[in-house]
Design a protein around this nucleic acid. Sequence first.
DNA 1: TCTGGGGTCCTAGGACCC
DNA 2: TCTGGGGTCCTAGGACCC
Length: 429
Amino acid sequence: MPASESRRIMLVDMNNCFVSCERLFGPILEGVATVVLSNNDGCVVARSAEAKALGIQMGDPWFKLEGRAKQWNLQYRSSNYELYGSLSERVMTILARYAADFEVYSIDEAFLSLRGTPAELTAVARDIRATILRNVGIPVSIGIAKSKTLAKLSNRGSKKNPALEGVCNLDDYTPEHLNRILAAHPTTDLWGVAGRTGARLTALNIHTALDLRNADPALIRKKFSVVLQRTVYELRGIDCLPLEPPATVKEQLMFSRSFAIPVTTRQAMERVLSVYSQKAAGRLRKQHSVAKSMSFFVSTSPFSDTPYESVHGGVSFPVPTDDPVEMVRAAIAGLIPQVREGAKYVRAGVMLAGLCARGAQQPLEVFVPLHEHKAVGELLDRVSRRHGAASIGLGLAGLKGAPIWSMKRGHLSKRATTHWDELATVHAR
DNA sequence: TCTGGGGTCCTAGGACCC
DNA sequence: TCTGGGGTCCTAGGACCC
């Protein structure tokens, strides 16, 4: 075994993920400036290279761009998470073949841990890239380095420098060259360092990734946290962040949405809370968990001229539960009295916390609330699986037809990989 | 008129216990 | 009215990520 063979972290990232997915089934978008919008068609969450070249930023509100879309020949799509999730799974399945030690980090990124010489690892990366492009049709970029933090930075390089053709291996650079690379990045380009930390670092005369790498780890820990101290070590090539095993179940869970139009009455808000609580409870049952506590909020727009208003509430359940009846009741009782009639609420959310496996601790029968026996949740799940999500719901959520405040998705593509009736059609000439 | 949603980790501080 | 120290657990809030 050559002495230069060692373990490296590889970060594989789907390029402009959501746009690439849209292009796969909408070839008309190929080569055209394209953005994908967040829920509610609110703001930009993915941009093609052409859209980036137009100066469109991540998070730009759509209403500010819409007027220029025609002039720019800018195409846009509502987000279609079912499609993206399905394509992501295909990519991850391929990646899993290359490394036993493998972490799906997000819908469009995965870390792999591999051994080999620099040349071998670069060759593997090229093979991964070609295979995913051929078998799924999505372009990916790959960064290789000694730690996750450096692999992230390396991945950035693979995107910024076209000559690298999508693969950047930091082992290909001399220490002097690596220093120049680190010096060229402000600290906020690093994974785990955002604006607030960046500003505090600047005050300590730490401006670039190189400055941070050379900073005293003990001082960084004292002034910031163990998290940033780890970043310092990671920049030095000391791998501090292990690859995480696949997530079993979530530790907390949220359902929250902005409304297409503001909700201004308590009566309408009751229906919102009822629907949202049932959605959250449904997700909880799907992962076979129960929740110890629940919290909820409604809020007005932080961008409006009128003062921002928000109302929060929460309960702890006497016995951890997944019962939608109990949750709907708790949310309505906890929040509706505080809701101000006439205020323009634009958003609401329900959070479930302290999740644990259902049945992990069987409560004494005497403490189980009465309706727990009725298994209402399971019944709701069964009916909606069979007849569609809108077919059943508790109380005010049971009305057929979407309420006017529900989410806006004006430019949704088809769910071409997961629904028979939305398959792509190929026209022969 | 119109600005996303869903997570994780860490820390500080309070409650409570012996 | 005085009155210890150390530990754990929980929660809220901050910061960050995609």
